[in-house]
């Protein structure tokens, strides 16, 4: 991949991420027997949010949020430049920490509860990501995405990694059943609650970047077989949307339990699978 191409992919990430999000919303509406919004709805929302009056609760709140968005974008750039998987995971963690601090910096109970819950869900999904990164290392012998993408396809040994990542996807994207950190009906969006106007757009566009972040993890499991990788992404996209539509939100402690038992468990199974059966 040429540098220019990678740069373009990274730079326009919010744009095609937005299209993914629009497709997601339409898909969800179709599953609920509705017509749903237009595919370009996220961009209409974005342009609308630009034209609204700017509200700032306090300066740190907004600044942390800008940090969050920029560092997340940097992580997406790192993915497209074929960076180190561990750096990417920790970069994403750093971005999430900015997000959480931003939630704590306002004196709103919903925002702080959202931060608490987000922190707990980070504690839940971050080990799974790391275990799965180890699995990928065991199979390909490297953490560099560019080298992984050049290696021959070895999906057989990464089946359990894929399954375990399927638990991470809804948690990072805050989709049901693992959306306790957002919980629109309980804490009105959690950390998002105090943002308005153009600054809410940052939170909104960060959702697209998060989508790219988690789905690129699934994409690299197929290594050099890009068609199979796309198939994996589309499959998990459908699976996650289906599960989102057919489950209720579970509580944060059930979330921790479920993620540690099944997500982390599958990650450990994956390590043994690779060590015992594939090498």
């Amino acid at each position: 991949m040429s540098i220019v191409f990678s740069f373009m992919l990274g730079f326009f990430a919010p744009i095609y991420g937005g299209i993914f999000y629009g497709i997601d919303r339409v898909l969800k509406a179709k599953m609920q027997r509705r017509k749903g919004p237009p595919v370009l709805q996220p961009f209409y929302d974005m342009l609308k949010l630009f034209s609204k009056t700017k509200f700032i609760v306090n300066a740190p709140h907004t600044i942390w949020m800008i940090f969050y968005f920029l560092s997340l974008w940097a992580v997406v750039f790192m993915i497209f430049f074929g960076g180190n998987l561990l750096y990417i995971i920790f970069g994403h963690l750093l971005a999430t920490v900015f997000f959480i601090i931003s939630g704590y910096s306002v004196n709103s109970i919903f925002s702080q509860l959202g931060s608490n819950r987000k922190l707990l869900s980070v504690v839940a999904y971050e080990p799974i990501l790391i275990v799965n990164a180890i699995c990928i290392y065991l199979v390909f012998g490297t953490f560099e995405i560019s080298e992984i993408l050049a290696a021959p396809n070895n999906f057989n040994s990464l089946v359990f990694t894929f399954l375990s990542l399927l638990f991470v996807v809804p948690t990072v994207l805050k989709l049901s059943p693992f959306d306790a950190s957002k919980a629109h009906q309980e804490i009105v969006g959690g950390i998002e609650v105090e943002f308005g106007g153009v600054f809410y757009e940052l939170v909104y566009a960060a959702k697209f970047l998060e989508m790219i972040f988690v789905y690129s993890f699934i994409f690299i499991l197929a290594s050099n077989d890009y068609i199979f990788g796309t198939f994996l992404v589309v499959f998990s996209f459908f699976a996650v949307a289906l599960v989102d539509n057919s489950t209720a939100r579970i509580k944060i402690d059930s979330l921790l339990k479920a993620l540690y038992m099944y997500g982390f468990g599958l990650g450990i199974v994956s390590i043994f699978w690779i060590l015992l059966c594939c090498i």
Partner: peptide, 16 residues
């Protein structure tokens, strides 16, 4: 009740 427990699909189904 379904909506408040974060179950949007069920909400839509029952409302339909």
């Amino acid at each position: 009740t379904a909506e408040n427990s974060g179950f949007e699909g069920m909400f839509m189904k029952i409302m339909g």
